[in-house]
Design a protein around this nucleic acid. Structure first.
Lengths: 163, 163
DNA sequence: ATTTATGCAAATCGTTTGCAAACCT
DNA sequence: AGGTTTGCAAACGATTTGCATAAAT
């Protein structure tokens, strides 16, 4: 089997942007939900920001988005598999990004303990596979059924190291 | 520049329980803090529970621990490197456990999306090393200075799979 | 004796919810 | 029309803080 092509986190997303909307629409429709203007705004904002953002960041990157709608819609988008919620860093605050099924971009996170910023990175396919295998072994040994794994790097980003 | 070394994988965990108290006392003293009865209670509870617990769990596992003291002391214990805060799962809620420097036990987490339970596991030393190396490479390429990594498995635990 | 930690109750702040209006199909 | 989504403001809850007392050195 040919390993999925490895792309830098930023580039992996570009070629599918065209059909993201219809993919989202489909997923929502399947769940009896509508792809309303507000939801479209959220999805577009997430795509533009292209990194895990907090709800606060999302709200002021999305003109006219009410707080309650942000929460409600992110919840809907989460259960329909459109966005992915990640909870990172000591600064707590959940962050959201488009789900990997939409970006075709399996990645991990760099978490800066200095400023709380979160960025994406990828690891070599070989290691990714070794990880998956090892985790599968752990899982089957314990009766745990994995749906996903998370690999994050915690430390200080270049900017915070400088200061 | 060579990236800072990450923690090596270590298997044994039980042998250091005896001097945990003095180790904690030392770390607190170094920070100008006291190892009070309340803090001792928290550390002992964490050691007894031996898994990442929420503040609520900790409070009712520790008789006479006031809510505010729990928060304040966990904050102190966190910055002094005695406990480690982890934020996992969609159920949010931070969890705390004794820091790895005290348990000599580098491990990862199994997170059940069904019941929110969190458990520990370890991966083979070889994989742990491969991970560390790969992450070091990623880090030095981006100017990120890693202090730690996190590898978690997300899925459904045996109990939740059954139901 | 002086400094630090504790408990309680009040204040905070992110998140959730009730409800009426706007929206979509 | 019939059901869904939205915005506002009120409600909620976990976390934090002020302050007077208790404990530690």
């Amino acid at each position: 089997m040919v390993p999925k092509l490895l792309l830098p986190a930023v580039a992996g997303q570009r070629e599918r942007t065209v059909d993201v909307d219809s993919e989202v629409a489909m997923r929502l429709r399947r769940a009896g939900q509508r792809y309303s203007t507000g939801r479209r705004g959220i999805v577009h904002a997430l795509r533009a920001l292209n990194r895990p953002v907090t709800i606060a960041e999302l709200i002021d990157a999305t003109p006219g988005l009410a707080v309650s709608s942000a929460y409600r819609n992110l919840a809907v988008l989460e259960v329909t598999g459109v966005v992915h919620r990640i909870v990172l860093g000591a600064d707590d605050h959940a962050r959201f990004e488009l789900a990997e099924v939409l970006t075709a971009n399996h990645h991990h996170h760099l978490i800066c303990t200095g400023c709380g910023a979160v960025d994406d990175f990828t690891v070599p396919a070989r290691l990714e596979k070794a990880l998956t295998d090892a985790l599968g072994a752990v899982a089957s040994a314990t009766g745990f059924a994995p749906t996903d794994h998370r690999l994050d790097l915690v430390g200080t980003c270049a900017a915070c190291t400088a200061s």
